[in-house]
Structures are given as structure tokens and as C-alpha cells.
Design a protein around this nucleic acid. Structure first.
Length: 573
DNA sequence: GCCGTTTTCGGCCCGACTGTTTTCAGTCG
């Protein structure tokens, strides 16, 4: 059993306990433990062997015992008992918007509903409206919620959400009375996947703006409408939530709506320690006076904290760092001096070598890596060694034409085969300027085997970068089941850089492992893996992963000046 | 169920919106 399976089990326990009506703090304890396991890089099996389960934050005697039982027997008596008491089918009705644990329990105990299908039938038959606290409207909301769930059960990708959000912000900003409009929520924190699009606005005439917002032609359905907050479902499947306050309260509103929830809870605890009560309206002091804030910086400062970049606001130590003045100076997209992972129509790219290089030049890059696929990746029309050398000549003659306006690095994205060997012999790889080794197949191999493959590839001195290390594809394809502690140790020992792939469908290295790698001193490379010129603009998403991983610019090899990068590449040979 | 430079017991954020209620519970973020 791996860490993610433990996470799923403890979340399941928390949900079931909540429906059962257990103390909320008990439920929260299980959720906290699940979050800790999610963030933990070490394999829980190893932590158990080391006798350190109770060192995990949020894990005490009781939960440690349950982890041990799960890891040693594969089962958990406590959960089996719980599932006898609470029908597990109820968990799927928790996913219905506006249905929480209390209503789930009500439907179950008073109407005998035990799964989503049962709920839909009961609602259609008008059997929910007679339950205590329910009525016709609530019954209708349940039906609407089930429909909504069917339409869009998945979270959206960050790269899909931003263009929609930008369009709406532009629209909002041209409305008279809207002083300011900005992104908030998980979008502003640049999470890899987004639930709703949260927007905030400083507004003089909230009633009018809310009317315009909820009656926008792209709105399919109004989910809620108030004077400070409204929520709509769009025809394109996105949900947008808009929060408003008068301009003088914009700082607290923006801070509040940006979250994360856990970050905000901690911030309010700090406020309490300082004798305040914090809400989106402002700070309330002990005398009951409200202190509004125009901007976030002054709010954080009043609480004795440095301003915290939104990407860090996940309650992962950022508040402590802001208290002690030890926040990192996060990497920015402008720090990137070049691209190291790209493709052309020599393999599965959509543009010629010349077109890709021209796009890179236009972006002002100092260097550019051309790394097409190796022969093993048949579906991508990978190059055999002979074709690779032909391409090398093409790159060299292009370089002659271009002079020193941009430095071209000719390399390859070489396939790591099922046995961990690479697609080209060492003498071919040794000739190249840069070598990225990637897994594309056999991602479902058992943990030991797939981990060993990666370790073997990293140990080859010709390999400079490991491309999209986990092989995940958002939101569908799971990452390879890697032993990350071993992978990161291997990277540290071999000195390879790990790629943060900027494609919104990958964002791989994941932020959790990127942060650990960064702490260990492993080098990173933020690359787009571009298959067409426009994709070079995706770097902002890879940078956002690095920022969420607390990464500073000098840890990322393609922020380096050309000479430093060339020196590093040379030293790898 | 976890946790502790104010606590080993008593805490564990705060408000908007909805729909059901006649002042509040449930859900959400």
C-alpha cells in the first residue's frame, strides 16, 4: 500500500464519520492526517520501519496504529466496522453540490437512501420535500446538483481556467463602478487543477454589477446571488464565483477569497492572538472597531507578517516563514533565459526547426534546446541514430546563419526502455549537447521496477535532465508509482536536473516532490516540451509549479547565464 | 483525535447565501 492509497482511506474515514455525526474535530483530525500523508515524500512503509509514524504532523497514537494495521495487513478493522454502520454508497452523494454530511444522514435515516441513484429516484418522485428542513426548492436543488455532477465531475485544468478568467476580468473592468477586478482562489494560487473560478472586485454599485454578472449571456444557471457574493454556472462548464466589497475593503476581501482555507484559518488564529477578529470585511479590534485594508500587504503587516505570495498560501509553513522573515525570493517567468526541451516536425512537432528557433529568438531567449524523440518512441516517429546526426547537421548550419543571437543546443529526448537502458548507445549520446531522458511507456510497472528504471537512467553520465519524471497526464493518467525518496536520492547523487514540465496537462514534477527536491539541493529545469511555437508561452505554468514549491531562480538551470549553463553541461560529461 | 514558549485538558476561524424557519441550520470556501 502506498501513501496515496492511505490518503484515500483516511479521507474515506473522515467522510463516513461525518455522516455518522461524529465530533467535527475528530473528523478534522483524520483529514489533517490525510493531508500530511499527501505531502509526505517518504514511503509510509519506510516511516513505519523507522518507528516514526507519530512524527508525522497530525498523526498521534490512534492514527499511527491504523496506518500500521493498514500497511501490515492491508485492511483496517475500524473502517470495516464503520462501513457496516454507514452505507459507503452515501459517499457519492456527498459530491452533489449543496448536499453535505447532515443532509446525507437525513436522506439515509429518514428516507432509506443509500446511494446516488436512490437519491435521484427519491428526488424525482417528490419524496425529499417532506423531510424535516427540506422543501420543494431544496428538492429541486438536489436534482439540479445531480445533473451538475454528471456534467462536470472533474476539476478543471489551470491552463483552461486562466483564459476564461482573463476574459471575465476584462469584462468586469469595463463596467462603470468597478474600481478593481482580480483573480482569487486556487486560480490565483496557481493550483494545477481548479474547482471554481474565483474573482474579486472593488465596486461602488454592487447591486448593478451583480445584476450584470448573473445575467451575462454566457451564464447557464445562477447558483446563488447576493449583494456581496454571487455564483454562476457558465455554458462552457465552468463555475464562476464573484465576491465584492467597497474599495476600502479590497485588501481583506482579496486575501480572504484567495485562501487557501487552511491558510486563512491560521491567519485568523494569528489575528486572535493579537486581539483581533479577521474576516473579509476587515480586522475587528477588541473594542469592536473595524479596520479595513485597501491592500493585502498592509493587512499582513498589521499581523506582523511579510506579504506572502499567493502560490505559497497552502498552510505549508509559509506563515511561520513570514513571521521570521525567511520567505523565499520565488522564481519568476522573466528569470528564464532559455528553453531546454522542445520538438520539431522531425518527429511529432507541428513546426519546422527554423520556425521553432525563430519563436524562441522572438522571446529573447539566450539559448534553445532541440530535443526530438528517439527511435524507441515509435508513435512519435522517433529518430534513429542516423537521422539524429542529419538533424545535428541541420542545427549546426542554422546556428551558422543565426550567429550568436541565440545559442542552439542540439540534443534528444531519449526513451528510457522497459529495462532501464536508453534508446541510443552511449557513444551517440556523448556527442550531443544535451540529453533529456524520459519515461513514456511501462508507467504501470510495479514500484520497484519503474523506480529502478529511472535510477538506472539517472546514473548514466550522459543524461542531463529527467523529463516529466512521473509521466502523469492531468486529469486522467495516473503518475507512475515511484519510490520518490529513492528517486530524489538518485537525482542528488547523479547530479541530474529534474524537469518541471510546463504543459498544463503534465505539470510534472509535481509541486510536492519539486519542493522536496529543492530542499535537498537538486537542480531543476522548467521546460515547455513545446511541439509548436505558441507552446513556448506555457512556461508560466511550469514556473507556477516551481513557485508553489518554494523554488528560487538560481536553482533552475535554464535561468542561468549561457556560460554557466554550458559549463554545467560540460561538467556532466 | 491531536496538540501544547500562555495548556497533558480544553481548546480547535469566520461570514455569505439559501431555504426553511419565525431565529436558524446546512453548506461552502
Amino acid at each position: 500500500m502506498n501513501n496515496l492509497e492511505l490518503v484515500a482511506i483516511f479521507e474515506r474515514i473522515a467522510d463516513l464519520m461525518e455522516i455518522k455525526g461524529e465530533l467535527v474535530f475528530k473528523v478534522q483530525a483524520y483529514r489533517r492526517a490525510a493531508e500530511s500523508l499527501f505531502l509526505m515524500v517518504s514511503d509510509a512503509n519506510q516511516v513505519l520501519r523507522d518507528g516514526k509514524l507519530e512524527k508525522i504532523p497530525g498523526v498521534g497514537k490512534a492514527i499511527a496504529g491504523k496506518i500500521e494495521e493498514l500497511l501490515t495487513t492491508g485492511k483496517l478493522g475500524f473502517l470495516e466496522e464503520l462501513e457496516k454502520e454507514v452505507p459507503p454508497g452515501l459517499l457519492e452523494i456527498l459530491k452533489v453540490p449543496d448536499v453535505g454530511p447532515k443532509k446525507a444522514a437525513l436522506f439515509w435515516k429518514q428516507a432509506g437512501i443509500t446511494d446516488l441513484n436512490g437519491l435521484e429516484v427519491a428526488a424525482s418522485d417528490g419524496k425529499l420535500r417532506t423531510l424535516p428542513g427540506m422543501g420543494e426548492k431544496s428538492e429541486g436543488r438536489v436534482l439540479d446538483g445531480i445533473e451538475a455532477l454528471k456534467r462536470m465531475s472533474k476539476r478543471k485544468l489551470l491552463g483552461e481556467a486562466w483564459p476564461v478568467a482573463r476574459e471575465w476580468l476584462e469584462w468586469l473592468r469595463q463596467i462603470p463602478g468597478v474600481i478593481k477586478a482580480e483573480p482569487a482562489g486556487s486560480l490565483r494560487r496557481w493550483k494545477s487543477t481548479i474547482g471554481d473560478i474565483d474573482l474579486v472586485a472593488a465596486v461602488i454599485n454592487p447591486e448593478q454589477v451583480m445584476e450584470l454578472f448573473t445575467h451575462h449571456q454566457q451564464v447557464a444557471r445562477i447558483l446563488s446571488q447576493g449583494e456581496k457574493k454571487s455564483s454562476v454556472e457558465l455554458k462552457n462548464g465552468f463555475n464562476i464565483q464573484l465576491w465584492m466589497q467597497p474599495p476600502e475593503r479590497f485588501g481583506t476581501l482579496w486575501q480572504y477569497a484567495t485562501g487557501s482555507k487552511e491558510h486563512n484559518v491560521h491567519l485568523r488564529e494569528i489575528a486572535q492572538l493579537n486581539g483581533y477578529s479577521l474576516s473579509e470585511k476587515g480586522l475587528l479590534d477588541a473594542a469592536g472597531r473595524e479596520h479595513p485594508f485597501l491592500d493585502e500587504r498592509s493587512l499582513y503587516a498589521t499581523l506582523g507578517l511579510l506579504w506572502i505570495p499567493p502560490e505559497l498560501r497552502e498552510e505549508r509553513g509559509e506563515i511561520q516563514a513570514a513571521l521570521t522573515g525567511s520567505l523565499p525570493r520565488l522564481i519568476e517567468t522573466d528569470d528564464l533565459q532559455g528553453e531546454l526541451h522542445s520538438h520539431t516536425d522531425w518527429t511529432d512537432g507541428y513546426a519546422t526547426l527554423e520556425e521553432m528557433v525563430e519563436a524562441a529568438r522572438k522571446k529573447g531567449f539566450r539559448f534553445y534546446g532541440i530535443t526530438d524523440h528517439s527511435s524507441g518512441l515509435g508513435v512519435a516517429g522517433g529518430l534513429n541514430a542516423e537521422r539524429l546526426m542529419q538533424q545535428r547537421h541541420a542545427v549546426h548550419s542554422l546556428q551558422e546563419k543565426l550567429g550568436d543571437s541565440i545559442h542552439l543546443l542540439h540534443g534528444v529526448e531519449v526513451e528510457i526502455r522497459a529495462d532501464g537502458s536508453l534508446d541510443y548507445p552511449d557513444e551517440v549520446l556523448a556527442e550531443l549537447d544535451i540529453v533529456i531522458a524520459s519515461l513514456h511507456s511501462g508507467l504501470r510497472q510495479p514500484r520497484e521496477i519503474v523506480t529502478e528504471r529511472l535510477l538506472k537512467a539517472m546514473a548514466n553520465p550522459n543524461v542531463d535532465i529527467i523529463g516529466h519524471p512521473s509521466g502523469r497526464l492531468l486529469p486522467t493518467r495516473e503518475a507512475a508509482d515511484l519510490d520518490w525518496e529513492k528517486v530524489l536520492d538518485g537525482a542528488l547523487k547523479s547530479g541530474v536536473a529534474l524537469e518541471i514540465n510546463s504543459n498544463p496537462n503534465r505539470l510534472d514534477l509535481d509541486e510536492v516532490y519539486a519542493r522536496k527536491a529543492n530542499e535537498m539541493g537538486i537542480l531543476l529545469s522548467v521546460d515547455t516540451d513545446a511541439h509548436r511555437p505558441a507552446s513556448l508561452d506555457l512556461a508560466v505554468y511550469g514556473v507556477s509549479v516551481a513557485r508553489r514549491a518554494w523554488v528560487e531562480a538560481d536553482r533552475v538551470i535554464n535561468t542561468w547565464p549561457l556560460e554557466k549553463l554550458l559549463g554545467w553541461l560540460k561538467s556532466r560529461k
